[in-house]
Amino acid sequence: MRRFSPQMICLYVTGAEWTYTGEHGVDQWAKDFPSYCSGQSQSPIDLEASQVTYDSDLQPFTFSNFDNTNGITWTLLNNGHAAQVSIGSGTMQVSGGSLGGTYQVAQFHFHWGSDSTKGSEHTVNGLAYPMELHIVCFNTKYGNLGDSLANPDALAVLGFFFE
């Protein structure tokens, strides 16, 4: 499981000033946004199958209230990079795996491309997927997303590739 440091949250906090290519592309993130994007393990990443090892100690994730939308308010917006759904009220949480705590869903968003050969933010062995879903969660011990960001265990971002 890849652990995300506070520096890896740059895609979620800097807004529409960045892009994946061009003047504000990936190669410029550390220079343009040093407070958030100057870490050693930045997004986007290429997951190399030859570098993946199986961890038999990992436990399954536990999802709470993902099947109960009563009392949950949602806001859909185009943030300039993805379709994003922010959770305004209600509690959807995830724990288990190797998280070491309970994480509350703050938002989820989709990345997609103009055809089925591109779209995902991340790749596997250099190959992109047509779409990728990120569920962005914050550690509940900090109370809210903003207060959690200065901590190394601030976020858990669950990523799902679509075929």
Rank of each mutant, 00 (worst) to 15 (best):
L47P: 00
M1Y: 10
E132Q: 15
M131R: 12
K118G: 04
Q104C: 04
S43H: 12
S148G: 07
K141C: 07
E163I: 09
T102Y: 06
T62R: 09
N144C: 04
G101R: 08
F138D: 01
S35P: 03
K141S: 13
E132W: 01
I87N: 04
V124E: 04
Q7I: 05
S38E: 07
Y103P: 03
N125T: 07
F63Q: 04
E121M: 15
F108V: 05
F108G: 04
Q42A: 05
P34R: 03
P44S: 07
S35W: 10
G97D: 06
C137T: 14
D57M: 11
F160E: 10
G39K: 06
K141F: 07
L47N: 08
V13S: 02
R3N: 10
G100Q: 04
G15Y: 08
M1K: 13
H24N: 12
G119P: 00
T102S: 14
G97M: 07
C10R: 07
S41L: 13
S35G: 11
N139E: 09
S35M: 12
T73Q: 14
G90R: 01
D147Y: 03
A83Y: 10
Q104D: 06
L155Q: 02
N151V: 08
Y20G: 06
V94T: 05
Q59R: 12
G146Y: 09
S41G: 05
W18D: 00
G88N: 13
T73K: 13
P34V: 03
D115G: 05
S148T: 10
L47W: 15
E121I: 15
F108E: 04
W112Q: 11
I9C: 13
D32G: 05
T123L: 03
S50M: 10
L155A: 03
A150D: 15
I72A: 02
M92Q: 15
D32E: 11
T62W: 00
Y54K: 14
T62E: 11
L11C: 06
Q51N: 13
G71W: 09
G143S: 05
L47T: 11
S86T: 13
T14Y: 02
G113S: 00
S120F: 05
H134G: 04
F33S: 04
S56C: 08
G15H: 07
